[in-house]
């Protein structure tokens, strides 16, 4: 009994009041921030939520110190291929996954600490023309990659030292898969969005990698990216971002949508709609629970409540520089916001 809100709801005079700056960390050796994330890290019997920052040639692990300060624990050097993404691995400890490449991902690596050798190490997980990668629960990684002839969609299991022998190939759709999302509460279901705007659903139990259904999102929202999927009352609710959607009179400038799909009939219905603040364009987003965040081309960061369909906070670029990155921490209502100069600010939302 909820209907898509076609009229964008925007708050006038949005400010940072919903975001409280907690601390910031600056890597003096880092020039350009590429990505930021959080990871659970255990050392000497103490398990802490640490921050991981990436620039093109290195990835650093930061641990919390007293008084909201952060100390660098270690920096992995990655000099051969540029780092382009940190791939969060849910429910794992002492393991950082990164994607490296030029225009697209060519390599996936694990960064870890080996207690056997008492040293920080890195190991290669996969190479290829990788189009999308996502960390799954139970220390697994799903990726889509392309050769000239075909697309491979594969789930690999990770050991503490790298790629384990257990793997599973999923039936690929004809079109390239650009993003994945686990179906919350259903370990055996996985969803992907494709280059021609379809939602595909796989069964990923140990026996099969069947492609169960392909459903179309609609032509108005090209190259939609799935962020979050949950199943409720026989429907699949998919949170999508629309990095390339054009502004329209009826919908404004769409940033995120929640769409309900009936997997049995492939019919769908819009549930909630979030628009960009007026005068802003372009976005690169992240979603956690009902909170969505995106970096806009103006150098601002916008935050939305997806249940309300409203923009709830706006971080404008300030004299210290434009915003380049925005990610939610894996736990707590904490926003990680990165500037081009490598500074990462932690905000409580």
């Amino acid at each position: 009994d909820v209907a898509e809100q076609l009229t964008p709801v925007l708050l006038d005079g949005l400010t940072e009041e919903n975001l409280q700056l907690v601390s910031n960390l600056k890597d003096s050796s880092s020039s350009c921030a590429v990505d930021v994330s959080t990871v659970w890290w255990e050392a000497a019997g103490c398990r802490e939520l640490c921050v991981v920052t990436a620039c093109e040639s290195s990835v650093s692990l930061w641990k919390p110190l007293a008084s909201d300060h952060w100390g660098k624990v270690y920096t992995w050097q990655l000099t051969e291929i540029p780092v382009i993404q940190i791939v969060p691995l849910p429910d794992t400890c002492n393991l950082v996954c990164i994607a490296l490449g030029d225009l697209e991902i060519g390599e996936i690596r694990l960064l870890l600490y080996s207690s056997e050798n008492n040293s920080f190490q890195q190991s290669l997980v996969k190479t290829g023309n990788i189009k999308a990668v996502l960390g799954l629960k139970d220390r697994r990684l799903v990726s889509s990659s392309r050769t000239v002839q075909e697309q491979q969609v594969e789930i690999v299991s990770l050991s503490v030292t790298g790629r384990s022998r257990d793997g599973q190939t999923l039936m690929p759709p004809e079109e390239t898969v650009l993003a994945f999302a686990e179906v919350e509460g259903m370990r055996d279901a996985l969803v992907g969005t494709t280059a021609v705007n379809s939602i595909v659903v796989w069964s990923v139990n140990l026996k099969t990698g069947q492609l169960l259904k392909k459903m179309h999102v609609g032509y108005s929202y090209p190259a939609s990216i799935c962020h979050r999927v949950y199943s409720d009352s026989g429907l699949l609710f998919v949170v999508l971002s629309h990095p390339h959607a054009k502004e329209s009179e009826s919908c404004g400038n769409p940033a995120f949508r929640v769409i309900a799909f009936n997997p049995k009939t492939a019919r769908s219905m819009g549930v909630m709609f979030s628009s960009l603040p007026p005068g802003h364009t372009g976005r690169q987003g992240d979603v956690k629970d009902a909170s969505a965040v995106a970096v806009l081309t103006s150098g601002a960061i916008a935050v939305w409540d997806l249940l309300l369909g409203q923009c709830t906070a706006l971080l404008l670029p300030d004299p210290a520089g434009s915003w380049a990155l925005a990610r939610w921490a894996i736990t707590g209502a904490c926003l990680l916001a990165g500037r081009w100069d490598g500074t990462v600010c932690l905000y409580r939302y």
């Binding site: 069964s203 492609l211 026989g234 429907l235 019919r267």
Partner: peptide
Amino acid sequence: CSESDLGPISLNWFEELSAEAPP
């Protein structure tokens, strides 16, 4: 969301689609 908009809804959609899909 109602069945008139989305067609017949099944709580067991995953099991049913798994059984229908080619191996």
